[in-house]
Simulated scan of single mutants.
Amino acid sequence: MDNQWVQYHQEDRVGVITLNRAKANAYDLNFVIQFGEALAKAEADTQINAVVIKSGVERFFCAGADINAFQQNSTKDNQKMVDQARRNMAAIEASNKIYIAQISGHTLGGGLEIAMACDLRFAAKGGYWFGLPEIKLGLIPGNGGTQRLVRLVGLSRALELLATGDSFTPEQAASWGVVNRLYEKEELNEQTHVYARTLSEGAGLAIAATKKALRQGIELSLADGLKREQELVDGLYNTHDGQEGFNAFVEKREPEFLGK
């Protein structure tokens, strides 16, 4: 591919995926393929438990699909892009690693769908917008926007936002639960990195089990969710990390988790 719009690197035991397609990180088929490749690199990196997805573009996290390209392409080509985008979202949710969307610019349409597929969203205060405006194109979100938004904000709020396509501020996103943490812009990168590094220094197996318990359990009845939790914790007792946690507590020292 001539243009490299999505990069992966490891920084101080934190995986970092940077979206970097001027001017708005609007994505096409090549972009979502590159994003999938970056996710695969992050998944294969055994030294990390956390991945930060952020933008290298000043004013945008991601504006979603490139509408001009979408209009010009055949339905078949557009479907390839959408299918790859959906695989990317599923890979984030299925990963044993914690994904954090670091947001400091406009996060719209498919861009918000990327952010909502992440496990956590840390955002900067400021004059930019979140939104799912697909209804204004005669469509609805197609990469999980309806299902993930309703799980974050509830039925009434999700319907209100989706039926109008209206945008909302970072402060509203935080108050409604779309965003987990809100920082001053100059603090966002450092604070996100510190949090992610703490995860990567932690008990990787237990972190993965926690994500599984929540992601899978929320779709189950309480009884089945409790059963799944039991299965996950029972699998941790005889691991190195499980034993190390107990030993370190008794010996009054910091544990050294190895992810095994």
Results as ranks from 00 to 15, higher is better:
83 D>Q: 10
63 A>W: 12
47 Q>F: 13
167 S>A: 02
102 Q>S: 15
68 N>C: 00
36 G>L: 01
121 R>P: 00
26 A>M: 04
157 R>K: 15
14 V>C: 08
1 M>T: 10
51 V>M: 05
183 Y>T: 06
187 E>R: 14
202 G>M: 02
224 D>Y: 09
2 D>F: 12
183 Y>I: 08
96 N>H: 13
121 R>W: 01
45 D>C: 11
174 A>I: 10
41 K>I: 00
24 A>F: 03
163 A>I: 08
97 K>S: 07
231 E>F: 12
147 Q>R: 10
158 A>Q: 04
236 L>Y: 13
222 L>A: 15
107 T>I: 00
252 K>G: 03
2 D>T: 07
72 Q>C: 00
249 F>I: 00
230 Q>G: 00
241 D>W: 06
21 R>K: 15
211 K>F: 02
79 Q>H: 07
173 A>W: 07
92 I>S: 04
79 Q>V: 00
212 K>L: 06
195 Y>Q: 04
210 T>V: 01
116 M>I: 09
46 T>D: 14
153 V>T: 10
58 E>R: 07
201 E>G: 01
226 L>Y: 09
215 R>E: 13
162 L>T: 07
120 L>F: 09
67 I>L: 11
184 E>Q: 13
256 E>F: 05
182 L>P: 15
114 I>V: 15
234 D>Y: 10
89 M>H: 10
2 D>H: 05
217 G>A: 06
38 A>S: 08
48 I>V: 06
136 K>G: 01
241 D>N: 11
241 D>H: 08
201 E>S: 02
45 D>G: 06
142 G>M: 06
246 F>V: 08
252 K>Q: 13
131 G>F: 11
146 T>L: 13
220 L>H: 02
102 Q>I: 01
162 L>R: 12
18 T>D: 03
106 H>P: 07
49 N>Y: 03
218 I>V: 15
166 D>C: 05
32 V>Y: 07
201 E>Q: 11
145 G>I: 06
105 G>T: 00
188 L>F: 04
24 A>L: 02
137 L>M: 09
178 V>T: 05
21 R>N: 15
54 K>R: 13
52 V>L: 12
166 D>A: 12
184 E>A: 11
170 P>F: 07
127 G>S: 14
87 R>T: 05
60 F>R: 03
135 I>C: 11
129 W>V: 02
223 A>K: 07
232 L>Y: 09
151 R>G: 15
153 V>C: 11
256 E>G: 00
72 Q>L: 07
110 G>A: 03
130 F>D: 03
174 A>K: 15
229 E>K: 02
81 M>C: 04
108 L>F: 05
105 G>Q: 02
8 Y>F: 14
73 N>L: 07
62 C>L: 09
21 R>L: 09
23 K>H: 12
258 L>M: 03
230 Q>S: 10
93 E>V: 05
248 A>D: 08
194 V>P: 00
173 A>S: 11
93 E>S: 05
14 V>G: 10
84 Q>M: 09
223 A>W: 01
36 G>S: 06
77 D>N: 09
252 K>R: 14
128 Y>F: 15
186 E>H: 11
64 G>A: 11
72 Q>S: 08
190 E>C: 00
154 G>Q: 05
163 A>Q: 15
30 N>M: 05
204 G>S: 08
18 T>R: 11
9 H>W: 10
204 G>H: 03
22 A>S: 14
73 N>T: 11
